[in-house]
Write a protein that binds this DNA or RNA. Structure first.
Length: 877
RNA sequence: GCCCGGGUGGCGGAAUUGGUAGACGCGCUAGCCUCAGGAGCUAGUGAGGGAAACCUCGUGCUGGUUCGAAUCCAGUCCCGGGCACCA
């Protein structure tokens, strides 16, 4: 029987399911290994081949660790609250619960077909009241500790999405999802005090094994800066002072003016009558100016003088107070002392408005503006001090003179935690008539979402939950007094902030998880997911985990010991351009190939007449090779197409559905191919031809052990033992190499080594039984279905899932002879075969004896001979 | 603008971290097998020269260090990602 994945794979998947092969058990006799994928949002579109790449990698590790004797926790679940299901509900009236359930079914079916070793008995769905009960419970803990509070804050309101967004979800004034415009509005919102953990979120990064760039992004996001807070008295206003934050208090004597953000509270108070109209106009213009426009011309710094003056507490000078939008209202105190000599922005601004520039730090080799460290000059009592000392001295002075104090500020803001949506966790709180807020009792959790049949927001800036009147209006069970429920829900991040903890004990209904399970399984040993979660999800989850640590509920400060970001799988799409910008179906568009088009501003234009054009993506079945290596349209003659390799997406028509790949080549081939493509953390393009290579490898592996033409024969009859010395050595190096590669997640080279084994093992003699046994075990983590099948055919009764991983005989890893390269003046001239333990003299002799080497020496005596044992000999003449 | 990655055959990628560049795979070429094959098997495949033995060149570019550089250093050019007036 030939290799037939369609017969093998469903059979073994069913066997694993029936025997609960992958159920994770707490086993104190075994070391544990917790390997986790970032759980997906089950979208309606289903999976494409890019999604499972990380899941394949973690599955290989999970299976490998099981065979190495670890008790492995490898779970999967669904991050199922979120906007798309709600949007779909608004459009169609289908309840998000229905959509969510359907999507989960599709995802689960697709994932299951790939033969992953998940413990499905631990499946989690964040929308399950049995789960979000504990999400609400954790919120209560946050509230009790003063880490959740309501505040009237200027929020990012997105009219198109009908909700507020966290700062992190807004990019260039547009929503991260969908790119809709966002406006700033004051609203009462739930906030989480993540800033209280800022220092620990930075410090504890040192202890985790994460990619350095990700750590750096988190540190930058938190944006800690040390310096001083300083008060500058406003001249002629005895009771007013402007608070500023600076990281360079040592430059105080060089502060020649001040700048307030246009939104600063003092602007209206201190502006002189003469400047009032100019200032008012500027403030209004700044408020209207979009984020994008402000960033776009960051080069020119606009501003206007208030007419007021402040007193520099260092020099005692009167310095003018300006307003300008290059000072951000939201950072520090919304005001700065401007030191044009030592800050590029202040330097530009001063140059533009003719403000004085005073050098107070001598920085070697730098002209003004010099922002580096140096030695203070013209700065009174700190003159002559190097920057670090000058900072300390002046902070001491500031504090003793009560001008301010040493201070630390962060870029990180408190986390805006409420959304004006339906499909999320309700807040477990009651709003009482006196304006106070109290938690609902723990016994009343979960506070379930009320049923609705209309999911649209009510009016402007209101929430869909407003429609559930008899849910909103309630009484406080403790006092019987009237109360209202919160009309907001939690953001999608909430459920993913702690799901990795629920997995350790997912059916517990008296606690979020038991201390025993947490102590055994946590922390996550390996966490794999996309780099797009580098900041948000990982920062939020770490924050919650630290709060739980402070509550004594978890025993490690960090949840994820090792983090790996898998690279994307890219798809090829093919495009041309046309001038039908408005997508009008009635016009007959003029078409252009990519050669007739150039980029211009936001879009593309035809090179010939400069008219705007739009890219059109062609379905793959309409793409033909055009002989010269290019591509052309199948049904529009002469239309040249451009190949674009990019992220798979529906709109590009470049998605590859794993179902089709599995149907044609099987799950084992898909798994092997995605790993074989290259390093796990790099992106790589998918090609349909490429998968043939790994499919052939599996066929060869099959034929190595199964005689296809012998019906009824489960496997070839193999000689006992380990085979010839050469075979034994090949096995040993393969075992060693594959083991090392898997441990280091170098899956591509591990597979290459398995291919070499299959190619060479039966070259001179049939493969021996022990070698076959070992090979199938090496193959098992990568291609588990074919491995189970072969394992059974080799006569084993138990699943290969827990068969012990083979060990390499160290004696066999040392080759008897080695091939040494011989160089003359650094150029390779020969290879000689010598005994592996040959000494330097023997190597030298062997090298000099070679005919080609002698030819290049041309009778000259070597000046120097460099011998590298086991590698090469270099003869220098 | 700043900060990270990364530039190796026609393509995806290897290279024990300073020691035979191109493992493995795709594609391509030739042969075998086959009624047939987008199947299978065998061999070849960086470029140029040469019947061959071999020779020259070759890891984005320009220099440098070294017996020896894809790997280290300096400069420079591209590509991808992140941040973007954070005081």
């Amino acid at each position: 029987m030939p290799y037939d994945p369609k017969r093998i794979e469903p059979r073994w998947q069913a066997t694993w399911r029936e025997h609960a092969t992958f159920r994770a058990e707490i086993d104190p006799r075994k070391p544990k290994y917790y390997v986790l994928d970032m759980f997906p949002y089950p979208s309606g579109a289903g999976l494409h081949v890019g999604h499972p790449k990380g899941y394949i990698a973690t599955d290989v590790l999970a299976r490998f660790k099981r065979m190495r004797g670890f008790s492995v926790l490898h779970p999967m679940g669904w991050d199922a609250f979120g906007l798309p299901a709600e949007q779909y509900a608004i459009e169609t009236g289908t309840h998000p619960r229905v959509t969510t359930r359907r999507n989960i079914e599709t995802f689960k079916r697709q994932i299951d077909a790939l033969g992953f070793s998940y413990d499905w008995s631990r499946e989690i769905d964040t929308t399950d009241p049995g789960y979000y009960r504990w999400t609400q419970w954790i919120f209560c803990k946050l509230f009790e500790r003063g880490l959740a509070y309501e505040a009237e804050v200027a929020v990012n309101w997105c009219p198109a999405l009908g909700t507020v967004l966290a700062n992190e979800e807004v990019i260039d004034g547009k929503s991260e999802r969908g790119g809709h415009p966002v406006v700033r509005l004051p609203m009462k919102q739930w906030m989480l005090r993540i800033t209280a953990y800022a220092d620990r979120l930075i410090a504890d990064l040192d202890g985790v094994d994460w990619p350095e760039p990700i750590k750096k992004m988190q540190r930058d996001w938190i944006g800690r800066s040390e310096g001083a807070q300083l008060r500058f008295p406003v001249a002629d206003h005895t009771d007013l002072a402007i608070e500023v934050f600076t990281t360079r208090p040592d430059t105080l004597f060089g502060a020649t003016y001040m700048v307030l953000a246009p939104e600063h509270a003092l602007v209206g108070v201190i502006t002189t009558p003469a400047q009032r109209s100019a200032v008012a106009a500027y403030v209004e213009a700044a408020a209207r100016r979009s984020e994008r426009a402000r960033v776009a011309d960051a080069k020119t710094k606009t501003g206007v003088a208030t007419g007021a003056f402040a007193v520099n507490p260092g020099s005692g000078e009167r310095i003018p107070i300006w307003i300008a939008d290059y000072v951000l209202a939201g950072y520090g105190t919304g005001a700065i002392m401007a030191v044009p000599a030592h800050d590029e922005r202040d330097f530009e601004f001063a140059g533009q408005w003719g403000l004085p520039i005073r050098k107070v730090v001598d920085v070697k080799g730098q002209e003004l503006p010099s922002t580096g460290e140096g030695v203070s000059v013209a700065s009174g009592f700190i003159s002559g001090l190097p920057t670090a000392q000058a900072k300390r001295r002046i902070i001491d002075w500031i504090e003793s003179e009560s001008h301010g104090k040493g201070a630390v500020t962060y870029k990180l803001r408190d986390w805006l935690f409420s959304r004006q949506r339906y499909w999320g966790e309700p807040f477990p709180v009651l709003h009482l008539e006196d304006g106070s807020v109290k938690l609902v009792g723990e016994s009343e959790l979960p506070l379930r979402l009320p049923e609705l049949d209309d999911f649209r927001p009510v009016g402007d800036r209101e929430t869909p939950l407003e429609r559930a009147t008899d849910w909103i209006v309630t009484t406080d069970p403790a006092t019987g007094r009237p109360a209202r429920r919160d009309r907001n829900t939690m953001p999608q991040w909430a459920g993913s902030c702690w799901y990795f903890l629920r997995f350790v004990d997912p059916r517990n209904d008296t606690a979020p998880f038991s201390p025993e399970a947490e102590r055994y399984w946590m922390p996550v040993d390996l966490y794999v997911g996309g780099a797009e979660h580098a900041v948000l999800h990982l920062l939020y989850a770490r924050f919650w985990h630290k709060v739980l640590y402070d509550l004594g509920l978890v025993h490690t400060v960090e949840p994820f010991q090792k983090l790996v970001n898998q690279g994307m799988i890219l798809g090829a799409s093919y495009r041309y351009f046309d001038d039908n910008i408005s997508d009008d179906p009635s016009v007959n568009p003029r078409r252009y190939s990519f050669r007739e088009v150039r980029a211009s501003g936001e879009g593309s234009v035809a090179s010939s007449d400069g008219r705007p054009v739009r890219a059109r993506f062609v379905p793959n079945d309409q793409v033909q090779h055009s002989g010269d290596g290019g591509f052309q349209h199948a049904s529009i003659p002469g239309l040249e197409l451009e190949e674009v390799i990019e992220k798979m997406s529906k709109s590009r028509g470049n998605v590859v559905n794993p179902d089709e790949v599995v149907a044609e080549f099987g799950a084992d081939s898909l798994r092997l191919y995605e790993l074989f493509l290259g390093p796990i953390d790099k992106e790589a393009p998918w090609t349909t031809e490429g998968i043939l290579g790994v499919f052939r490898f599996l066929q060869r592996s099959w034929r190595l052990l199964v005689d296809e033409d012998a019906p009824g024969e489960p496997a070839r009859s193999l000689p006992e033992g380990i085979g010839t010395p050469a075979q034994a050595r090949l096995l040993a190096t393969t075992v060693q190499g594959v083991s090392d590669d898997v441990e280091a997640m170098r899956f591509n080279t591990a597979i290459a080594k398995l291919m070499v084994f299959v190619r060479d093992i039966a070259r001179d003699a049939p493969i021996a039984r022990d070698a076959a046994d070992a090979f199938v075990r090496l193959l098992a983590p990568f291609a588990p279905h074919i491995a189970e099948e072969l394992w059974e055919r080799l006569g084993h009764r138990e699943s290969i899932a827990y068969a012990p991983w083979p060990a390499a005989d160290p004696a066999l890893l040392v080759a008897e002879t080695v091939t040494i390269a011989v160089q003359v003046n650094g150029k390779r001239r020969a290879e000689v075969e010598v005994a592996a333990n040959a000494g330097d003299d023997a190597l030298r002799a062997a090298a000099l004896a070679d005919a080609n080497v002698q030819r290049h020496l041309e009778g000259r005596t070597p000046r120097k001979v460099i011998v590298v044992k086991g590698r090469l000999v270099n003869i220098v003449i």
